[in-house]
Design a protein around this nucleic acid. Structure first.
Lengths: 204, 204
DNA sequence: AAAATATCTTGAACGCCGTTCATTTTTGCC
DNA sequence: GGCAAAAATGAACGGCGTTCAAGATATTTT
């Protein structure tokens, strides 16, 4: 087997991502320490820099995993064929809220992590964020048949961002965030209002 | 004049906040360095820790200033007496977007800065965030006369957070954020949809 | 199979950072 | 002017991400 080296390399990377994921889930991505992850992964400090460029890259791999799980969650949100466009929107939003609540710090890491000044998020990772808006296009198209593809894509981003904002401020515990106990119903009310408003707009 | 010492103390604090504000506006709050601010403020490194508890407290004072300016901006958004509830909402949102764009990193600092694990934002600073939602209560009450004060306050937070989410993802340059060129119109469309949707809901 | 080469592993060391502290200087009061 | 309290100073400390020279290990070549 000529892939012994590749296997070990892949295994180390996996162990490091596992350890980083656990640390982030427990303490948040701002508290991720190189010495703590390598100790937990069972390797030397320097080994981290053979496996990844730097700590930021490691965080991006954790975020990549989280996005993948979130994508599956949103996929599974699709209700039956006779569901209305609003039903689909509500299901997507509810699953989004649920995932965010159950994976609070990992989910927050998706949006709090920023590479240091100067460099920006690499393309392979940027693209992975598409799962956040994929499911919105179809129901939105039913609500707004008057919009072209470009405007639909734009409006899907806006719709996602609106829900996202409510969840983010709430889960960050900000003063202006809604209390966690009201999060589901407030998001539901927002989706309801946006949906009805969008439907109205399509009739003008 | 027995207040010479107090004056000097206040002056140093002001110089430090000025310097920190400039640094944050230029490089973001994550790049704020104690040595850089003290050098720019014209004092020794240690003097910072006579004036403030730590760097986080200094950032909160910068954010305090920014919130104050933002509050004035939102105050000035109030349109004439014959404006509809949606007009008021649109004006608030437009001013919010404008402020955020013109003060990008200072505005982002309001929501990106988090004290280290364990301690949380002091009450005097949490309260200052109220300006973000103050102006929303009145027009929302006109749209939803059926809601009680508690639910109105909750819905005001949700409405703010929705707009906020769109602006945040856009100004952070996130993959799922809308392009800056479309920000105004997308926020406007969102406010329009939320407003119409809220009005419909009040009739049920 | 042995030698040669490429790769990985390791932890000490480097430079930067926030924060502290002993020391010196300044201030307010009698 | 003398004295106590407060503030200013910058060297020093501990923790951090990252690098690197040295040694260990795996792969290829002969």
């Amino acid at each position: 087997m000529g892939n012994n080296r590749d296997e070990k390399r892949a295994d180390l990377r996996k162990r490091l991502i596992d350890a980083a994921e656990e640390q982030i889930a427990k303490h948040g991505c701002a508290s991720l320490k190189a010495r703590a992850v390598t100790a937990q992964a069972g390797c030397a400090l320097g080994a981290l820099y053979n496996a990844f460029d730097d700590l930021d890259t490691l965080i991006m791999h954790v975020n990549s995993r989280t996005l993948s799980r979130l994508g599956e969650t949103l996929q599974s949100a699709r209700p039956g064929p006779e569901a209305t466009a609003e039903d689909v929107m509500q299901a997507l939003a509810a699953h989004y809220v649920e995932f965010a609540c159950k994976n609070r710090l990992l989910w927050i890491s998706l949006f709090e992590h920023r590479p240091p000044e100067g460099q920006d998020i690499p393309d392979w990772h940027r693209q992975e964020h598409a799962v956040l808006i994929m499911g919105i296009m179809a129901p939105l198209k039913r609500l707004r048949p008057d919009l072209n593809e470009t405007d639909l894509a734009l409006r899907a981003r806006t719709t996602f961002a609106a829900v996202h904002g409510v969840v983010l401020l709430a889960l960050q515990g900000r003063f202006v965030g809604v209390p966690l106990a009201s999060l589901y119903q407030e998001v539901s009310a927002l989706v309801s209002a946006m949906t009805r408003g969008a439907h109205l707009a399509s009739e003008n």
